[in-house]
Nucleic acid binder design. Structure first.
Lengths: 138, 138
DNA sequence: GTAATGTCTCTAGTGACTAGAGGTACAAGA
DNA sequence: TCTTGTACCTCTAGTCACTAGAGACATTAC
């Protein structure tokens, strides 16, 4: 049985975050010692690893809740899991697209000014003040 | 002179957000009518447009504060502005990089399961449970 | 037995807003 | 001039996914 600190080290999830996940219902309430401290078994470790991995991939707590629901019912169709993963993928792609636009614009703005002048003539500030100076819609 | 609602329409910044920016010190405290309602002039409109544009480009409130400081002191070197823009660009690039990794991984996971089986055999769930099934470090 | 470290609960803070309650001001039409 | 409807005011609390800190108790190593 692992203490919360040991579990934290193994999963690289911080101690308060583990407690937070328990509060949010992602982790089952842990067993306790006579002194009221949490103890975790292999199942707890695996579930936390699952959560951590899903969070790393950007899934929301809510999405992870749904995925765990499915995990706990191995007989259910996995369509829902695939849907969640697909919509997460779409979100990621949309974010990338938007960030690429920002990147272009920022790089153009940054290049426009060498930082050697005075702020009155700064192209960075001028660009931010006047959207018409932008090449791209954003 | 514009009411807060008119300013909101022109800049596409929501009314409570305008009040929030004032509270955060991004916008100067607006003039008031005898009945205590905010009124804005051209300078207010321009400043809010600046803020909105910078927020659209992902600058934090804090970064925008610094940029406004510079705007208000046209004699200062614009090096700081260029630095802020450059570091924002770097952040955007780092985010894109990370999201691309996620995209690859999610797309691989999604493709691995057609959603037609039962969750016990779902590749999406298996992948999330076991990081070793991942191709890429993330 | 004692000291150091770990753990407990609870509250509050983060960033950038958003929502809602309860009350007041303003503009347009009768 | 009065009324009605909309806009506006302040204030508090909620969002997401944690993070920080206080003050008290438990465990472990020596």
């Amino acid at each position: 049985m692992l203490s919360i600190g040991e579990l934290s080290k193994r999963t690289k999830v911080k101690v308060p975050t583990i407690r937070y996940y328990e509060e949010m219902g992602l982790l089952a309430e842990a067993e306790r010692t006579s002194g009221n401290q949490r103890r975790y078994d292999k199942a707890g470790l695996e579930r936390l690893s699952f959560i951590r991995h899903a969070r790393d991939l950007g899934f929301s707590i809510e999405a992870i809740s749904s995925l765990i629901e499915l995990q706990d019912h191995p007989d259910r169709s996995c369509e829902a899991a695939t849907n969640i993963a697909t919509s997460q993928l779409e979100e990621v792609r949309a974010k990338i697209k938007r960030l690429r636009t920002l990147e272009k614009e920022l790089s153009r703005i940054s290049k426009g000014c060498d930082g050697e002048g005075v702020s009155e003539d700064c192209y960075v500030l001028a660009s931010l003040a006047d959207h018409n100076l932008c090449d791209i819609e954003h």
